[in-house]
Design a protein around this nucleic acid. Structure first.
Length: 487
RNA sequence: GGCGGCGUACCCAAGUGGCUAAGGGAGAGGUCUGCAAAACCUCGAUGCAGCGGUUCGAAUCCGCUCGCCGCCUCCA
């Protein structure tokens, strides 16, 4: 298995620290607002990684945190006139609502920063003792900063030149810090701000220290994979490395993995630019599975341009998949003539036998979900070709069962393609806001069937036209008429 | 300015040294059908931003040029 490591800038063989086990830490969200599509991407990417590693038989321990105390949460609390922890709790709940909809499995451990204050304080104390950090008086309390100069390997992840950082006008000058690049481990609390008791008086943790404390607590001083969005590379992950490695004297994570951005008009989707769509805004118009396929049909490191066309394409792809599943179901439930041999069985079986290898080698190559989904649609085509040849008999049925089985592995890893065609179409009814129930449609089909029996084609066509105008397509098959939502 | 990335058909998107450049969407023609729909078949980049170079061989490696983006400040 190969994974791209941001630290080396190369794809490397993935060798876990302990054979058969993988520890992953993914930076989660700061809970001060609804999640947008960018958060969804990161969540889906690491969800798929973690599912695939499990599928490969690794004993995976997946940790994903919540930053539940920070400046933005405090700011939002003041705006809403609520307590900071009420705000945090609210957006954690909203986070789960969105992520559950998107089929994101819970991580094994989902720690919150505020539940690890004592661990953070312990790390900070040691960093001061080791001479990597210093406390500065601020009113009655003290703040603690990490002294970047004391950690010579600083910027090894983001490959920045410290001098450039120092020279850059964007680094804010803060008189309290020895150097502008030093960053806060502990912030003295100001009037009206939440605080915890510490050796430096009342204060709260800086942003980066939580990940160090929580990753080390739950995964150990060195673990396998640390990930997050590419925008976390600097300064967040760089600072985590500095404080963690200064603290333990050991490498922090062996592989650093970062997902690319979602863009709109080629620009990064972000809160500050205001060009974002929240997950729930999109869920209002598109089914969650559509979003998931949209996100997995590009490689995780590439930028993805968001557009309605893209979502439509993903929707059409899914519909193609479920239409084929529907054909499979029809085939398996139909009467078969046991004597007849399957037509092109050998070729089809050969394809099925190779399928799993193809899928796995795609995923083994740095989680290439785009290629993996490509393989799925090749499978769809092969199934359709096989069914078009009108096979019958036990051998054919066994092959189709095998095809279903073979695609199960993929469904489980991508958490995609795992509904029934009926569930898919009912979901489409909802996302396309079609005001017809299943029963309404079935009734129309019955009416039309009666007309067809009488060869009253005009009446039959009128029913079809009526449904078509509402977005429902009818398909006449041998054993009856089925319906589907127009994409 | 520093560092990093990207540019593959009408759109999206795999492929990073060697069999016919995956897959999806859109399009054209055909088979099937009461008519449709779906599905399948055929067509569709002699070509991978441009120009040079390395190589028996390059979309893939190297150099230059053009265009676009990201990080350098909170950010998934």
């Amino acid at each position: 298995m190969k994974v791209f490591n941001t630290m080396t800038g190369k794809k490397e063989d993935f060798i876990p620290l302990t054979k058969g086990k993988v520890g992953i830490y993914a930076c989660g969200v700061t809970v001060y607002d609804y999640c947008h599509l960018g958060h969804a991407r990161s969540a889906v990417v690491f969800d798929v990684m973690h599912r695939y590693l499990r599928y490969k038989g690794f004993d995976v321990k997946f940790v994903k945190n919540f930053t539940d105390i920070d400046d933005k949460i405090i700011k939002r609390a003041n705006e809403e006139g609520a307590a900071w922890d009420t705000v945090a709790k609210k957006y954690i709940d909203e986070y789960y609502r969105d992520m559950d909809a998107l089929g994101i499995a819970r991580a094994d451990i989902e720690p919150k920063a505020t539940e690890h204050i004592s661990e953070m304080i312990a790390v900070i104390k040691t960093l001061i003792e080791k001479g990597y950090a210093y406390a500065v008086q601020e009113g009655e309390n003290q703040s603690v900063y990490f002294e970047v100069e004391k950690f010579p390997e600083y910027s090894k992840l983001s490959k920045k030149d410290i001098n450039d950082l120092l020279a850059g006008a964007r680094v804010s000058i803060d008189e309290r810090k020895k150097s502008p690049v030093d960053f806060a481990l502990w912030k003295a609390s100001k009037e009206g701000e939440p605080w915890w008791e510490s050796p430096w008086g009342k204060g709260r943790p800086g942003w980066h220290i939580e990940c160090t404390a929580m990753a080390i607590k739950h995964l150990g001083e060195t673990f396998d994979i640390h990930g997050g969005g590419a925008d976390l590379i600097f300064p967040h992950h760089e600072n985590e490395i500095a404080q963690s490695e200064a603290y333990t004297g050991k490498p922090f994570a062996n592989y650093w993995m970062h997902n690319g951005f979602i863009t709109i008009d080629k620009e990064k989707m972000s809160k500050s630019l205001g060009n974002f769509f929240t997950i729930r805004e999109i869920l209002d118009k598109y089914d969650a599975e559509v979003i998931r396929l949209f996100l997995t049909s590009s490689h995780y490191r590439s930028p993805i341009e968001f557009s309605r066309e893209q979502l439509h394409d993903a929707e059409a792809s899914l519909d193609r998949y479920y239409t084929t599943v529907s054909r499979i179901d029809d085939f398996l439930s139909a009467e078969t003539t046991p004597s007849k041999k399957a037509v092109n069985a050998a070729e089809f079986e050969g394809f099925l036998n190779k399928f799993k290898d193809g899928f796995e080698s795609a995923m083994d190559d740095d989680f290439n979900t785009a290629l993996a989904t490509g393989h799925i649609f090749e499978l769809v085509r092969e199934i359709n070709i096989f069914l078009d040849a009108k096979p019958s008999g036990d051998e054919a049925a066994a092959l189709i069962e095998k095809a279903k089985h073979v695609s199960n592995s993929v469904e489980q890893v991508l958490n995609l393609f795992n509904r029934t065609p009926a569930e898919w179409n009912i979901a489409l009814l909802k996302s396309k806001k079609i005001a017809l129930s299943e029963a309404d449609i079935e009734q129309k089909i019955k009416d039309r069937q009666a007309a067809r029996q009488n060869k009253d084609w005009a009446a039959a066509d009128a029913v079809r036209k009526e449904l078509d105008e509402k977005g429902i397509i009818l398909e006449d098959k041998r054993d009856g008429t089925s319906w589907k939502v127009k994409i």
